[in-house]
Design a protein around this nucleic acid. Structure first.
Lengths: 234, 234
DNA sequence: GCTTTTAGTGTAGTATTGACACAATTTAAA
DNA sequence: TTTAAATTGTGTCAATACTACACTAAAAGC
């Protein structure tokens, strides 16, 4: 069966940008390639879309291979399709954006792929157009963390408000007023006080919160601001 | 040269969602296929990515074919890649989102493609997953028109505030208070009073404005609201 | 029990938003 | 040529949200 005899068949790659947060810095999971092509250079984790595989499944597969995690936050980001972007062969790459709880990943899998968590500032040059992809992803993170409660995806199940604040300060690289941040956050109604305290602290222990999963789903868009109130729920 | 002998080569399609506004309703430019496959059914305008063509150029080519326009507002929206989405052959489709000034299009080109402007409510069933694509595009339009000044792309070069308000009311399907809308809009500093009046009106003639192109570029993100002020300019 | 560090909350001034009413312009009909 | 109908343009007040800022509380180390 060939309905489109004249059209070109092209390699479709999947590349994954994986963000983590160690309590201080935003980090990227990058691999130092121990395979060809571009062996020895740094790149994003990637692979090719299989002939009978759904695109989203391909992303999950590749993320699972590297992190050992299945239920992680993934969004499709953008498809890169410059004709010459891969000098080996014409390849279109669909880039996925993932946020993971950094302590959950399978460090064996990461080691076997020769991967490492690297801060944004310290990141090496990457192959092909992967640098552009990362730039786009950072932009997306900044943009979306301002509008939707995705920051939680980078924190442990139970987290404190100061942790969340440090995360936002890392994303935007600015200091945030503690009191205003806390007030705005609590007013979303997304946090549930677990009654527990954070024992990691050497001084006053902060309250541990968890996400209200129900509200999280229904109020995913609640950071919106320009919309008339009647639209915010849609 | 074949660096990736084991990977699958796949058809890469480009599908375009084209929005227009006639002063009253948001409309989609759809084609009634006079070619195989799915001849006689309605679909989005599309085509295949050529072997040596940049992805973005492919979108521009396809949009030009249908509308006769070159400088239109285009964003890449999302790539659809379910394995079975095209029953003819495995095809990944990159969907583009375009906003055009409806009076500018080349009606000969539209006619020769058997295309028509159809309101969102009246749209027919579409082939494959094109229905989903349109749904995603409408969502994107609602979301982005609230955050960025993209509405202007659907209006003539010179437009009135009441026209713009009708556009927003059509996008969100809600009534908007004239006074508050006007105040918020003018406060963006994006509008330049041309000194002219709209002669189409049968009653009081509204002031014609044009976009301040400079400010439009630098303040494209100025509808943001959750971000700290220091970030809004970035 | 004193010091240091971090967490948690309150308040007052300012800016933005939403709800609302009236005046001005234009055409067409009386 | 006045009057009515439709539409545009602007002002005000109250409620809300935001910003800037200061004090109290808890925990650990000395």
């Amino acid at each position: 069966m060939n309905n489109y005899p004249q059209a070109s068949r092209i390699l479709v790659a999947i590349d994954c940008i994986i963000f983590g947060f160690d309590g201080k810095d935003i980090k990227l999971l990058l691999i130092k390639r121990n395979f060809e092509p571009e062996k020895g250079k740094w790149s994003l984790m990637g692979g090719f879309l299989n002939a009978e595989e759904d695109l989203a499944d391909g992303a999950v597969r590749i993320l699972y291979n590297l992190t050992g995690l299945k239920d992680i936050y993934v969004e499709q980001l953008e498809t890169f399709g410059k004709a010459d972007r891969d000098p080996g062969e014409r390849t279109v790459s669909v880039v996925f954006f993932a946020l993971i709880k950094i302590d959950d990943h399978d460090s064996e899998a990461v080691k076997s792929h020769n991967a490492a968590w690297i801060t944004l500032d310290a990141r090496p040059k990457l192959i092909f157009d992967h640098e552009q992809m990362v730039g786009r992803a950072i932009e997306h993170l900044k943009y979306n963390a301002a509008l939707h409660p995705i920051g939680f995806e980078l924190l442990p199940e139970r987290f404190t408000i100061p942790q969340l604040q440090k995360l936002y300060e890392a994303i935007y690289n600015i200091p945030i007023d503690r009191r205003n941040f806390s007030r705005k956050l609590l007013s979303t109604g997304l946090l549930i006080d677990t009654g527990q305290k954070n024992n990691n602290s050497a001084t006053k222990k902060a309250t541990l919160y968890k996400l209200d999963a129900e509200r999280y789903k229904t109020k995913f868009h609640s950071f919106w601001n320009f919309m008339p109130d009647s639209m915010k729920s849609q």
